[in-house]
């Protein structure tokens, strides 16, 4: 690892921990570490004339931890398995709805606002976790790297909007809170859900995984139909 890479790696961790501290103290939703920390780093890169490639040569090791972190979600699911089984109906029904709504709403809003077909296809898989979203994007004729960007923008948006939605439409149960965060904003939503509570986080982890699996099936069956009827 180069010197810049090393500094980027350590620096990202330090800036992240500091932004978390500030976020906890101010408790302002807009100060989410996922928004503040990247903004500070972008500013530092601009000031020091460092390219993203140089930064990412070290920081990429953090991105790589997303893999084992996904595997790690087996632990909260294992710990709360009995409870999840008990609520299997609510989980299944809400996530199938969520996945279908994610595909339809991205599609319709994008058509309405006038985006190109390629951008629409890249947008559709954005609410699920990156590797799967990129695969689906490829399958349905999108641009996988653009999809990866939309996934992160969605995660950021969802982790800020999610708690507001919970408050505004008066979502009461832990299950519903966790499920909507994991469905709408994958890992970023799940992280938010763990802030609310262990149980919410567990539901959110499960939502993130099941939503990804449902989306694989829907993008193979349901999405081509939409494409056929709406774009022709």
């Amino acid at each position: 690892m180069s010197f810049i890479g090393f500094v980027s790696f350590i620096g990202t961790i330090i800036i992240f921990l500091l932004s978390k501290k500030v976020y906890r103290k101010m408790n302002w939703i807009i100060l989410s570490p996922l928004l503040i920390c990247p903004l500070i780093i972008i500013a530092l890169l601009l000031i020091t004339h460092t390219s993203y490639e140089d930064y990412n040569s070290g920081a990429t090791w953090l991105s790589k931890l997303l893999g084992p972190a996904t595997v790690a979600f087996a632990v909260p699911i294992y710990k709360n398995y009995a409870l999840l089984k008990e609520h299997a109906k609510a989980i299944g029904a809400s996530l199938i709805t969520g996945c279908a709504v994610a595909i339809i709403s991205s599609f319709l809003f994008a058509l309405w606002i006038g985006l190109s077909n390629e951008l629409i296809n890249s947008l559709v898989p954005r609410s699920i976790t990156t590797p799967i979203a990129m695969d689906i994007s490829e399958i349905i004729g999108g641009e996988p790297t653009m999809t990866a960007v939309f996934v992160i923008v969605t995660g950021l948006t969802g982790s800020i909007i999610g708690p507001l939605i919970i408050r505004y439409i008066r979502i009461r149960t832990s299950a519903a809170k966790g499920l909507l965060l994991g469905m709408g904003a994958h890992g970023c939503g799940t992280s938010k859900a763990f802030e609310i509570g262990e149980l919410e986080g567990t539901y959110s982890s499960l939502a993130m995984i099941v939503a990804a699996l449902i989306s694989i099936v829907l993008s193979d069956t349901f999405f081509p139909l939409l494409q056929h009827y709406l774009i022709g």
Partner: peptide, 20 residues
């Protein structure tokens, strides 16, 4: 793009939460 993402995320989250 951001408008679509924000609108769609709101709808997805609201529907998922309400159904659950």
């Amino acid at each position: 793009l951001v408008t679509v993402i924000v609108l769609s995320t709101i709808v997805v989250m609201a529907c998922t939460g309400l159904v659950a």
